[in-house]
């Protein structure tokens, strides 16, 4: 194992985050916190509790998930796309590093950053809404697992994209809508049966519900199913990455 290489890639990516602290940390934390101010402090009291949880608190896991998903994808995709774009990828391709080492470096850094962001958002949320965490270890487990899974997805997108527009495409057109429709702001049990059934095809429903269960001990769907789907998605991403490195897709001519 080329641990020096993993460390070099990881440190390089984390340095990038530090340089852009305002844009990469402060801004997402602030943006998400606005939801807590509005729904928690301002109008939350006028909305009925869901399963005995105040509305402001109910939406926290979903909003944390939203940030976790979009930030993981954005970070990891940018991390590998940028060297391709400016040509410095030559060094990575000529270095004695395995696909596993490259992925650990890039995906590890992206996931670290989005987990830190998620924790910051939760701390901020605690100021505005009555937050409780019933299963802290499960909560951390879901957090890390989801961060890694979506950073893997981001890595795939960063290899696939051949312009900046495509890089933004998936977070904006896929992840954000799926998260908003995936029970972040409501329990899918309140939906008419047809829409509830359709919602069950949305993978984010399972991510949000698994995560919410770790906070309030309640979920619209089985926690084990949530875990299984997250793992399944991770394996799918790993398979695609394995294929990318085996064929040199978009990396080597």
């Amino acid at each position: 194992m080329n641990t020096h290489a993993i460390r070099a890639i990881y440190a390089f990516e984390m340095a990038r985050t530090r340089r852009t602290l305002l844009q990469s940390v402060v801004s997402p934390v602030l943006a998400t916190s606005l939801y807590f101010v509005v729904f928690g402090a301002a109008i939350g009291s006028r909305i009925a509790e869901i399963d005995g949880v105040s509305y402001g608190a109910f939406i926290v896991p979903g909003l944390v998930m939203l940030t976790l998903l979009t930030q993981s994808v954005q970070n990891a995709s940018f991390g590998i796309y940028f060297p391709r774009f400016i040509g410095t990828i030559y060094e990575l391709l000529s270095a004695p590093v395995t696909a596993t080492e490259i992925v650990i470096g890039y995906v590890g850094a992206a996931a670290t950053k989005s987990v830190v962001l998620a924790l910051l958002i939760m701390v901020t949320a605690a100021f505005f809404v009555p937050l409780q965490i019933a299963h802290p270890f499960a909560m951390l487990g879901f957090l890390v697992l989801t961060a890694i899974t979506f950073s893997l997805l981001g890595f795939v997108i960063g290899v696939w994209a051949d312009n900046f527009e495509k890089l933004q495409l998936v977070p904006l057109l896929v992840i954000t809508p799926l998260t908003f429709l995936g029970g972040t702001f409501y329990s899918i049990d309140v939906l008419p049966p047809v829409w509830r059934a359709i919602s069950l095809a949305n993978p984010v429903v399972y991510l949000v519900n698994g995560f919410r269960w770790s906070f309030y001990g309640k979920a619209d769907v089985s926690v084990w199913l949530c875990l299984a789907i997250t793992f399944g998605f991770m394996l799918a991403c790993l398979a695609v990455i394995w294929w990318i490195f085996r064929t040199g897709y978009r990396l080597k001519s």
Partner: peptide, 27 residues
Amino acid sequence: LVPQELATDAFETVFDTVSFSRGLFGK
């Protein structure tokens, strides 16, 4: 390898980018 086309990072310092290469090659 020193490739034909100029391709460098932008925001890193000279020392950091050279140290990065050394790490990447397992040193």
